Amino acid sequence: MTGIVKWFNADKGFGFITPDDGSKDVFVHFSAIQNDGYKSLDEGQKVSFTIESGAKGPAAGNVTSL
């Protein structure tokens, strides 16, 4: 699925993605970002991701920028 990064705190390594389908915002951890180098996201960035079952509920996985 796709969405827009609502916010991401690079110091803490997590944030939230707002899915394009209008569903509830999804937690994203830096370890789910699939790019080389520094793993961070920018507010407003368009991303593709999967929904994984995290310890505290749904979380984004396999996050790639579009």
Rank of each mutant, 00 (worst) to 15 (best):
G37T: 10
I33L: 10
L41G: 01
I51T: 06
G22L: 06
A60P: 01
N9H: 09
N35E: 11
S23Q: 08
F16Q: 04
D25G: 04
G54F: 09
S48A: 14
Y38E: 11
G13T: 02
T18M: 15
F49T: 00
P58H: 10
T64R: 13
F30P: 02
S31T: 14
I17K: 00
Y38K: 10
W7M: 05
Q45M: 14
G54N: 11
E43P: 15
S65I: 15
D21N: 11
D11G: 12
I4A: 06
K6M: 04
D36Y: 11
D20G: 05
G54K: 06
K46T: 08
T50W: 10
V26P: 00
P19C: 07
F27Y: 10
I51S: 04
G57D: 04
M1V: 10
G44E: 03
V26G: 00
S31E: 05
D21R: 06
T50A: 06
L66P: 07
D25Q: 07
Q34P: 04
T2F: 07
N9W: 12
S65N: 10
F49D: 00
P58E: 09
L66W: 08
A59C: 13
K56N: 12
F16A: 03
T2D: 04
K56E: 07
F8G: 01
P19I: 05
G13S: 03
K46E: 08
W7F: 09
L66V: 11
G15R: 00
K56F: 14
S65E: 13
V5C: 06
L41C: 03
S31G: 06
G3V: 01
T50Y: 09
K12A: 09
A10E: 08
K46Y: 10
T64A: 09
D11I: 14
D25W: 04
D42I: 15
G61S: 12
A55I: 13
E52K: 09
Y38H: 13
G3K: 00
V26L: 10
F16K: 04
E52A: 08
M1K: 11
F14H: 06
V47S: 00
L41E: 01
S65A: 13
S23K: 07
S65K: 15
G54V: 06
I51E: 03
G22E: 05
L66D: 07
I51Y: 10
S65P: 14
I51P: 04
F16H: 03
F16Y: 07
G54L: 07
K39I: 07
D42V: 15
G57W: 10
S48K: 12
N35S: 14
P58A: 10
I4G: 03
D11A: 15
L66N: 08
P19W: 04
M1Q: 11
L66Q: 10
P19A: 04
Q45E: 13
W7V: 04
V26I: 10
I51H: 05
H29A: 04
G54P: 04
G37N: 10
G22S: 06
K12V: 09
D42T: 13
D20T: 08
L66G: 07
W7C: 06
G61F: 14
F8T: 02
G3H: 01
N9M: 06
N62H: 13
T2Q: 09
P58S: 09
H29Y: 05
T50K: 08
V26Y: 05
T64I: 14
I33G: 02
S23L: 07
S48E: 09
G54D: 12
Q34N: 14
V26E: 01
V5T: 03
L66S: 10
G61E: 10
F14E: 03
V63Y: 01
H29F: 08
V28E: 00
V47Y: 02
F30V: 12
S23F: 06
E43R: 15
G44S: 05
P19E: 02
W7Q: 03
G13C: 04
S40M: 13
G61I: 15
V26R: 02
T18W: 07
F16G: 02
S23N: 08
V47D: 00
P19L: 07
N9Y: 06
E43F: 14
G22F: 06
I17T: 00
L66K: 06
D11W: 13
K24T: 12
D25S: 05
Y38W: 14
G57H: 08
M1A: 09
S31Q: 06
D21K: 06
T2Y: 08
S40T: 13
V5M: 03
T50G: 05
G15D: 00
F27C: 03
Y38S: 11
Q45H: 07
N62K: 12
V47L: 03
K46A: 12
E43I: 15
F8E: 01
G61N: 13
V63A: 02
A59H: 15
Q45A: 11
K56D: 08
N35C: 12
S48T: 12
E43V: 13
F27T: 02
F8L: 02
G57P: 07
T18E: 08
S65W: 11
K24P: 14
K39T: 08
F49H: 01
K46N: 07
V47E: 00
G61A: 14
A60C: 05
E52Q: 11
Q34I: 15
T18N: 05
A55H: 12
K39M: 09
G54Q: 14
Q34H: 10
I51D: 02
S23I: 06
V28F: 12
S23M: 07
T50C: 11
A59P: 02
G13H: 04
E43T: 14
N35D: 14
G15L: 02
P19D: 02
A55R: 12
K39A: 08
D11F: 14
A32Y: 04
G3E: 00
G15T: 01
D20Y: 07
F27I: 03
N35V: 14
N35R: 08
E52N: 09
I51F: 08
D25A: 07
